[in-house]
Design a protein around this nucleic acid. Structure first.
Length: 487
RNA sequence: GGCGGGGUAGCCAAGUGGUAAGGCAGGGGACUGCAAAUCCCUUACACGCGGGUUCGAUUCCCGCCCCCGCCUCCA
């Protein structure tokens, strides 16, 4: 089955053909570790996590690299504000990143390089650009000559002429041309600095990714990804550096995920309209956000709201219930005359799922295929419960449908793997209070209520149910007995 | 202003040259002693506006309106 991917470079959906058959090298821009991550970061992580899982499902050996920018202006500013070394800030937020990633079951990348451990590689890259005439030194700063790279703008579809209008020179910069961007910055007093042929300084932002890609994946990679907002200037600059030097295509496919908005405005630190990932998983199963992200195509904007989280939660439970309800069917007596099964539905759902995913990772459509199967399962279950019996074949088919649902959800969508957050967050604990409840006592009360119900003493039965509810326990009577759960 | 992406039922959201998935909400029903939970069915006659191409367009082309993003750091 062929996979089609929308390539930002060509603005077209193209058939995916890896450089080396059977292998995919993919790099995505990770986060700058100066603060905790929000839903916008989360979306990008989830999107590429799913893309990676799907590529692997298709049989590719995937090498996935995602970096950390662990030295930059924002980190330095924060460090100065807190009177701490910048490394402490970076380490703190790398740790925070991993907490988030673990909770959302974002698979760790195969390689997670940090800028500060790649300084020699970055210096080497810059030196080569200077040697080749693409970069120049001014008082310890090094700049890239944008005009020297003839393809500049091809990724973000910008022409040099257009860019001139918007270009500006920050105070203190010594560019020869306003279009140029900095590869190496001279250190100011008190800033972190490394020795280089041009004096003490630190790398500019765009250089790190190119250097780390060259080092870990080579001069041409299959897929380069990141948020839409990175297209310009970050990815354009990465590409310029890389192709100026290697004279080879830098990345064959560029994938950009759409941004998360709030009331239509981009979610961002500067606007202050962001929701942190920690807040999400302190209030919801992390899968709920994952499902919300997957219910929108990855290139479209996603407008975040708590209402949508509620809707997504319900949809998620619909999915999960279908899988769990096997337990009810299992307890029904056998009925050999029951003449339905789900094998056709399973085949159809699987087919539709993969077709959708292979069409530029159309997760909403793939999800619809899963819901189609859910409906078929529910109809079968309904019939079985009404007829008070089910055939072996039907039961088996339901079990298999549940497994298909569960496996597709888990292996490709990354769902159903994280039933509880693995890290407790104190700040938001009010939503997930662990009350001390003795299960045996609860079961005893349920037994008592059951007895009362059988004797038609509903006053007592309802009293028990109401009182349990007051202490946060909800009773649900099912065809096969009473279930209870915490609020 | 330039470039890019959008405007699909109450909300969200796929998709297609031949009258349109899915989720949520709404309505009806099943189940229940009553509930809750769950499930089934179902409503709407939804494709921004105006032209054009076509036997036929929501889908292609042109113009317009509106929204968002990028053009400065940003997933």
């Amino acid at each position: 089955m062929s996979l089609k991917i929308f390539n930002t470079l060509t603005s077209k959906k193209e058939e995916f053909v890896p450089i080396k058959p059977g292998e995919v090298k993919i790099y995505t821009c990770g986060v700058t570790v100066y603060d905790v991550n929000h839903v916008g970061h989360g979306r990008s992580l989830i999107v590429f996590d799913v893309i990676r899982r799907y590529l692997r499902y298709l049989g590719y050996h995937v090498t996935f690299v995602r970096n950390f920018t662990d030295v930059d202006d924002k980190i330095i500013n924060r460090a100065q504000k807190e009177c701490l070394p910048f490394t402490v800030i970076a380490d703190r937020y790398i740790k925070s990143y991993f907490e988030d990633a673990e909770n959302f079951r974002i698979e760790p990348a195969d390689i997670e390089p940090r800028v500060t451990t790649h300084i020699p590689d970055i210096i080497d890259l810059i030196q080569k650009l200077i040697d080749k005439g693409y970069a120049y030194v001014v008082d310890g700063d090094v700049y890239f000559s944008v005009r020297k790279f003839k393809d500049y703008g091809k990724l973000s579809k910008r022409s040099i002429d257009e860019l001139i209008a918007g270009a500006r020179v920050e105070p203190g910069e010594k560019k020869k041309d306003p279009l140029d961007f900095v590869l190496w910055k001279t250190a100011k007093a008190g800033e972190p600095a490394w020795d280089s042929p041009w004096g003490k300084g630190r790398p500019g932002w765009h250089t790190e990714c190119t250097a780390m890609i060259f080092k870990h994946l080579g001069e041409t990679i299959d897929i380069h990804g990141g948020g839409l907002d990175l297209t310009f200037p970050h990815h354009e600059n990465e590409l310029a550096q890389a192709e100026a030097l290697s004279e080879k295509p830098f990345a064959r496919y560029w994938i950009h995920n759409g941004l998360v908005t709030v009331n239509g405005q981009k979610m961002s630190k500067s606007l202050g309209n962001y929701i942190t990932l920690k807040e999400i998983y302190s209030r919801y199963d992390p899968d709920v956000l994952r499902l919300l992200v997957l219910s929108v195509h990855y290139r479209s904007p996603l407008d975040f709201s708590w209402d949508k989280m509620e809707e997504s939660k319900k949809a998620y439970e619909r999915l999960k219930n279908a899988i769990d309800e096997y337990q009810i069917l299992e307890k029904l007596p056998e009925n050999k005359k029951f003449d339905q099964h789900l094998y056709d539905n399973i085949a159809k759902a699987e087919k539709e799922f993969y077709a959708a995913m292979s069409d530029d990772f159309n997760t909403p459509e793939a999800l619809a295929a899963l819901f189609g199967l859910v409906r078929a399962m529910n109809i079968l279950k309904d019939k079985a419960v009404k007829e008070e019996g089910i055939s072996k074949k039907a039961l088996e088919s339901y079990k298999e449908a549940g497994e298909v649902l569960h496996n597709l959800g888990r292996d490709i969508f990354g769902l159903f793997d994280s039933l509880e957050p693995c890290i407790e967050i104190e700040d938001f604990s009010l939503h997930r209070e662990e009350s001390v409840i003795n299960e045996e006592i609860v079961n005893l009360l349920i037994d008592l209520r059951e007895k009362a119900r059988k004797e038609k003493n509903f006053e007592i039965a309802d009293y028990i149910r109401d009182k349990l509810k007051e202490i946060g326990i909800i009773l649900e009577d099912t065809p096969v007995g009473t279930k209870w759960k915490r609020v």
